[in-house]
Every structure is written in structure tokens, then in C-alpha cells.
Amino acid sequence: MDRIPILKFGNALLVTIQVDMHDRLATALEEDLTAKIVEYNAKGVLIDISALEIVDSFIGRMLDNIAAVSRILDADTVVVGMRPAVAITLVELGLSLTGVKTALNVERGMELIKARLRTTESEEDDVEQ
């Protein structure tokens, strides 16, 4: 089966969803991401959905799950690039994605994650002192 690629940069993971995912592919991504967060001890996950023309209840739930699981594993998930038409539709569908952090684009999302990495590092410094 196809897999969505997960890129690693420093302490963070980057996923760019470029295809219209069928449900099994979305479920596989959720599992792969969870495994990679643990494997790389990632502190941030950036998911770029700017290519997605729709987010339905299944993909919405996947994003929610990834955010919840990463939180438990001490990583921050930021979803970036949601199209305005998708955001409007999601609200009407009844999906609020309250547990998911979002940013306008990859750059802003990256800033959020970097800010988180800096506080984590300084906390670690504090412990060492």
C-alpha cells in the first residue's frame, strides 16, 4: 500500500499531504506518525494540508487523533494551510477541531514549533543547572 512520506528536520516531523487520501491511507499516516514521534523523540509535528480540497469527518478525526496522541507523547502538532473553503465547510459539517493547533502557512507553523522547541530546551537547561 502507498504511504504518505514523513520528513524529519531536527526535533520535528513534516508531512505534506498531496493526494486525496482514501481512509486506509489516512489511518496508516496516523500510525506511522505516532511511531516516528517515538522513534525520533520528536517535539513537533507539522501537517501541511494546503493541497487538500476537502476535509471530511474521517480526515478531521484523523487530525484530531494525531494532535491528541502527539500531545500525550509530548509533541506539538500544528496543521497548516487549510483552505478557506475547507474551513467554512468544516464548521457547517459540525467539526470544530478544537484540539488541533492551526497556522496559516508552513512558515508560521514552523515558528510555533520552534518557539516550543526553544522553551523545551531552556527547561532542560534549567534542570541541568
Binding site: D23, E53, I54, V55, D56, S57, F58, R83, A85, V86, I88, T89, E92, L93
Partner: peptide, 17 residues
Amino acid sequence: SLVDQTKVITAASELAR
């Protein structure tokens, strides 16, 4: 319109599933 396309595709996805 783009928004209406997005709405009907999303509804179709829900019902197909």
C-alpha cells in the same frame, strides 16, 4: 462556486462512506 463545490464534495464523501 468554490465554497459550494467544497460543500457538496464533502457531503458526497460522508454519504459514500
